[in-house]
Amino acid sequence: MSEATAGRRFGAGPLSRAAALIYSLLVVEGLFLVTAAPGLVALTLLGRDASNVPLAAACALPLGPALSAALYALRHRSRDLADLHPAAAFWRGYRANVRGVLKIWVPWLAVVAVVGTNLANFAAAGVPGWWAVLLVLVAAAAMLWVANALVITSLFEFRAVDVARLASYVLTRHPKATLANASLLVVAGGATLVATELLPALLASAFAAALLWNSRPVIAEVQEEFTA
């Protein structure tokens, strides 16, 4: 089937493009849930107790590679409406990036677990109130940093140390992207508090698409300035 024939058969208008995007999001969401299922199931079994913060961090281990694969699949989504293979792109990204992502994801989870444990036991620690504010700021900065790191390591091939440096560099280099990602994290956090911890996971492909959209200037600069 020629490209012109395929275009006439499947359509090339906004409705067809929207349908293709929705299809890709649904497929990627399903695969994200499959690959993240061990951690998500374990998270649902944990109670909201301060002592479970380290366990919750351990349960979140599968989420990093799964989110990275979602980013890769959506970034490499075919614009040809007759050639949509989001599942193949997801698994290709998962296999290619799992080791690199874990080198970033595991240290980040360790930091978040330490900060979360301190905040959960803040009253018993007897430290000044400003210390809690500092910990919250550290946690927020870490989350914005890991968002950049996930995008970079999912789409490019760099050493983990270089990903870490680039993720820190673009935080201040692209303040609009950082602010947009902060808004995205607020929405995800609000959804967790209002509904359930699983709601952000059920919307993971939409969040990944939004993260890619916010990170366009970051992706463009990394591609132009730091790749051959």
Rank of each mutant, 00 (worst) to 15 (best):
A88Q: 08
P86T: 11
A89M: 06
W105N: 02
R99G: 09
G116C: 01
R99P: 02
G129R: 14
A139D: 06
L102C: 14
A132W: 00
R79H: 14
L137H: 09
W130H: 09
S78V: 06
A89H: 00
A120D: 03
K103C: 13
L134N: 10
A88I: 08
G129L: 12
V127Q: 05
L84T: 12
W130S: 07
W91C: 07
L74M: 13
V114M: 09
A120K: 00
V138H: 01
L134P: 03
R77Q: 15
R79K: 15
A110F: 04
A87C: 11
A87K: 04
A124Y: 06
L119F: 11
S78D: 15
W130R: 05
Y94F: 11
P128R: 08
L135W: 15
A89Q: 04
W91L: 11
V127D: 04
A73T: 03
A139F: 10
P86H: 04
A110V: 13
W130V: 09
L109P: 02
R77F: 05
G93F: 01
V101F: 05
A87I: 03
R92V: 08
R95M: 11
V98Q: 10
Y94L: 09
H85S: 04
W105R: 01
Y94E: 02
L134D: 10
L137K: 08
V115L: 15
F122M: 03
V133L: 12
W91F: 15
Y94C: 00
L135G: 14
V98G: 02
L135S: 15
A110R: 07
V115M: 13
V138K: 00
V127A: 10
V106L: 15
R92M: 14
A139V: 08
W91K: 04
L84R: 14
A132V: 10
N121F: 04
N97E: 13
V106G: 13
V101I: 15
V111F: 11
D80N: 15
A123Q: 12
G93Y: 01
A139Q: 06
H76Q: 12
G129M: 13
N118A: 04
V115Q: 06
N118I: 01
L74A: 13
L84E: 14
G126V: 04
V136T: 13
